[in-house]
Amino acid sequence: MLRNDKKSITTFMLPASILLLVFMVLPFLMAFGLSFTNQRLIESPRGTQFVGLTNYVRALGDNLFRTGLTNNAIFVLVVVPLQTALALALAILVNIKVKGNKFFRVIYFIPTVTTMVVVSVIWSFLYHPDGLINGFLTSITFGAWDGIDFLNNTTTAFPSIMLMSMWQGVGFQMLIFLAALQEIPDSFYEAADIDGANTWQQFLYITLPQLKNTTTFVIISTTILAFRLFTQVYVMTNGGPQNSTYTAMLHIYNMAFKRLNIGYSSALTVIFFLIILVISIIQRIALNDTEEEV
């Protein structure tokens, strides 16, 4: 047997361990520590003091942060069910054994390899008051549609960003569902055919139960992405109009980078992380439950 000498272990482990400790564990722990101080990005002449729970008290009364979190929650409630259902529908569609299904699969995942900044820029043009989407709506309603400035309207701005985000992200979940669909043995469907189950019944009693784990994974990971929402809103609306597209991450960015208030933005970061943590724990529990059932 080859000796598991300390020297090899250290050589293999050290580079990644140091990087993880310095650039992940340390800042993660610092976020908690900093959240109890009035730390500034550029050290103030009065120095940094311990301020106790001041930052957290302030966060609780911070209307902008609450608006941001509420918008994140709305995004979750609208986008997660729609995107999951659409992803599943797409996966089933490209899983039908017809010629060219592979070609369509490629088309549907193309947006996922397009950078979010670029996607935001293209869609800003499509959403332009005189843009293609307004033009399309005008022509299918025979002129009844009055063009609207989608991104400058408090009612339409956030839904517009949601639609675009789904367009960009759904292909990814489609591929995850597709992989799971291909794991389901054909014999399940053959048996159901013999028993006279129709397509809908097969979907309900075979496909859906078999996809339970995958669906949980997709729902949770999309929820986490929804809380991390930043690039689209920053590029397209910068949180406006009237904060209708403001998000928690945008607020953290503004507090840290514009106000240079590291202490306060760290407190917001901790709250943000606790939300992500709860969602992740729910995922682990949900997945473990289903694993035990199998």
Partner: peptide, 30 residues
């Protein structure tokens, strides 16, 4: 095979939960 590797594996799994956004602010300070 060495002592403590199982512990480190669970540490790595735990770190997977931390999104970049949760460390961006202190990382900016560092």
């Amino acid at each position: 095979r060495w002592k403590g590797r199982a512990l480190i594996v669970s540490g790595v799994v735990a770190l997977m939960i931390i999104p970049f956004e949760a460390i961006a602010v202190p990382l900016l300070l560092i």
